[in-house]
């Protein structure tokens, strides 16, 4: 039984009527196909969007150790290049129809405006008057029981193969609470190891100042540190930090241990983290007071 695509013998020249019938036949099937696909898309798009949202929400919750009652605010950052302004849009995460606070700064950090809208304008950023806005990134602010629980900032690094997209979680004292690699195209078994809890866990507990000077070493990781980090996959971060306080204190001042055979990927993530945390601190110094006022 030959599985080859059959080479059709040349059929006789079709007449006009025949060609019309063929065309109608094909058109009918195409129209049916388009209708079916449209229907499937309509049915599944809601779920696809909800799944994406749920995945991120879970990551944020796990990184910061949030409980059910936590409130997360999503802050999207845009750039209006012509006016040399950055625009922040803050709204409750997952709620696209709720109140939105828009804060605008110049590139140099001067406050240009703040606006509260009970419901977002008809078109989200990207249409109409806001067409010139270019998305730059996102950050999330988490509050629990009335107090600031921490931040999660989305960042990107240039990896060995392609981009590495990650979340970095900072607590209210701007110490790293956790790192989660979301997307990457590194080699499995090599660069892809940076997306594992035992590598990401190395950043936990470092202050923002430490992160700014963080380096990567090729030295092998001490066994007890590795064993402790392996436990991160199963334990909530807060418990893990409490349990391994001494180890954290010992390893905190040291450089990050690179993945064997993937120094470049390890460095890429570290550099990306450094830039992201630095940018975030600078931005939050300006933005924080604006979001807190009258919230």
């Amino acid at each position: 039984m030959s599985p080859d695509l059959p080479i059709l013998p040349a059929p006789p020249r079709a007449d006009r009527g025949e060609m019309f019938r063929i065309a109608m036949n094909l058109t009918l099937f195409s129209a049916l196909a388009a209708a079916i696909l449209g229907g499937v898309w309509l049915a599944t798009e809601r779920y696809a969007a909800a799944a994406r949202l749920a995945g991120e929400k879970r990551a944020i919750g796990e990184l910061l150790g949030l409980g059910e009652s936590a409130e997360v605010t999503e802050v999207e950052q845009f750039m209006a290049a012509a006016a040399r302004e950055v625009v922040y849009r803050a709204h409750a995460y997952g709620d696209d129809a709720g109140p939105v606070r828009t804060v605008t700064f110049s590139f140099e950090g001067e406050l240009r405006g703040r606006e509260d809208l009970a419901a977002p304008a008809a078109a989200p950023a990207g249409g109409g008057a806001e067409a010139a806005l270019e998305p730059l990134g996102r950050m999330f602010v988490a509050r629990q029981d009335g107090a600031l629980a921490g931040f999660v900032v989305e960042g990107e690094a240039r990896g060995y193969k392609n981009r590495i997209r990650f979340f970095v979680a900072l607590d209210s004292a701007f110490q790293v609470a956790g790192v989660r690699v979301l997307e990457h195209e590194e080699d499995p078994g090599l660069g892809a190891e940076i997306a594992t809890p035992w590598f990401e866990g190395q950043y936990i507990g470092r202050s923002a100042g430490d992160v700014a000077k963080l380096t990567v070493t090729k030295d092998p990781m001490p066994e007890d540190w590795r064993a402790a980090l392996a436990g991160l996959a199963r334990t909530p971060v807060a418990d893990w930090r409490a349990k391994h306080g001494a180890l954290l204190a010992r390893e905190g001042p040291k450089p990050i241990y690179a993945v064997t055979g993937a120094t470049i990927s390890s460095r890429a993530l570290t550099d990306g983290l450094r830039t992201t945390v630095d940018h975030f601190r600078r931005r939050w110094a300006l933005l924080g007071p604006q979001l807190a006022e009258g919230a």
Binding site: M79, A81, R84, V86, F107, G109, H279, R283
Partner: peptide, 9 residues
């Protein structure tokens, strides 16, 4: 001098 994606830094 800024990165295009971080004009405020």
């Amino acid at each position: 001098f800024t990165e295009a994606s971080a004009p405020d830094a």
